[in-house]
Amino acid sequence: MERTIVSSRKASLLSSHRVLRNTYCLLAMTLACSATTALLSASFRLPALSPWLFLVGAYGLMFLTHYTANSAYGILAVFALTSFIGYSLGPIVGSLLHSGASDILITALGGTSLVFFGCSAYVLTTQKELSFMGGLLTAGAIVLLISMIGNAFWQLPAFSLGISALFILVSSGTILLKTSEIIHGGETNYIRATVSLYVSLYNIFYSLLHLLSARRSD
């Protein structure tokens, strides 16, 4: 009986390590894909997407990725999603580079990297189980949604900056929670895990760009 329990624990641990390794590997490739498409979009000065077109495209591709996560098509869907988001970042990146504000871009990249590695290192080092954060993050996502809808009508600059700051907090919490789920067996699909981490990184990066650009404008 004890041998069975030990064997089961070892199998679970190996499975978690495999999911974590595959997730980080796929995440690195998707980030490289996004960076490439963003630079190409910036270099050719391709037109920016309208907010509604971006939302429809991004959420549609995220739904497709989750729907195909258990098949080989899930990999294609992940790269389609990250290429699309990379394209959408191209005009922003191009604008910063052509206006001589490359320091904002570098700072946002560095800040996003620090948040990701800091959150991941904390969970991997402490091995804490953070499932209790699920409800808090859901509440945070609801607050964000309501705030974004409200800001679409009010157009208040200070309120918009507050939304960006809240995005960073919620996305950082998502990285903590998702990493914890992976190492404790709560998430067994590396494609879904990759998309969750990627979207969190995108939200942090974009929010940092917004905050830093607003500071430069002031």
Rank of each mutant, 00 (worst) to 15 (best):
Ile92Trp: 09
Asp103Thr: 13
Ile182Gln: 00
Ser43Asn: 14
Ser15Gly: 14
Gly60Ile: 02
Asp103Val: 09
Ala139Gly: 09
Leu97Asn: 10
Thr23Asp: 03
Met1Phe: 14
Leu176His: 06
Ile183Val: 11
Ser207Cys: 12
Ser7Ala: 14
Leu156Ile: 12
Ile104Tyr: 05
Tyr122Asp: 06
Ser196Val: 04
Trp154Gly: 09
Leu27Gln: 02
Leu145Ile: 11
Ala108Val: 01
Gln127Met: 13
Tyr122Cys: 07
Ser41Arg: 00
Thr194Tyr: 03
Leu81Ala: 03
His184Gln: 12
Leu166His: 05
Ser71Ile: 04
Thr4Pro: 01
Gly185Leu: 08
Thr68Asn: 02
Arg216Gln: 15
Val170Trp: 02
Leu177Ala: 03
Arg3Cys: 05
Leu176Ile: 07
Phe205Lys: 03
Leu81Arg: 02
Thr65Tyr: 06
Gly162Ser: 05
Phe44Glu: 14
Ala152Lys: 11
Leu31Cys: 14
Thr194Arg: 00
Ser217Gln: 10
Gln155Arg: 11
Thr30Phe: 06
Met1Cys: 10
Gly185Asp: 14
Leu55Tyr: 04
Ser12Gly: 15
Val93Cys: 08
Ile168Phe: 14
Leu161Pro: 01
Ile168Gly: 03
Asp218Pro: 07
Leu209Arg: 03
Thr23Gly: 07
Leu76Lys: 04
Ala35Ile: 13
Ser131Phe: 08
Ala69Ser: 09
Ser213Arg: 10
Leu109Phe: 15
Leu55Ala: 12
Leu46Val: 04
Phe159Ser: 07
Leu166Glu: 06
Leu136Lys: 15
Arg215Ala: 11
Ala35Lys: 11
Thr138Leu: 14
Phe63Ser: 08
Leu114Cys: 08
Gly90Lys: 00
Tyr87Asp: 03
Gly90Ala: 13
Gly74Lys: 05
Leu76Gly: 06
Thr138Glu: 10
Leu13Thr: 15
Ser171Gln: 00
Phe44Gly: 08
Ile75Asn: 09
Gly186Thr: 00
Gly118Trp: 12
Leu49Gly: 10
Leu201Met: 14
Leu124Cys: 10
Ser172Lys: 07
Thr188Ser: 15
Pro157Ser: 06
Thr112Phe: 09
Asn203Arg: 07
Ser102Thr: 13
Leu96Asp: 11
His17Lys: 15
Thr138Phe: 14
Ile85His: 02
Leu145Cys: 12
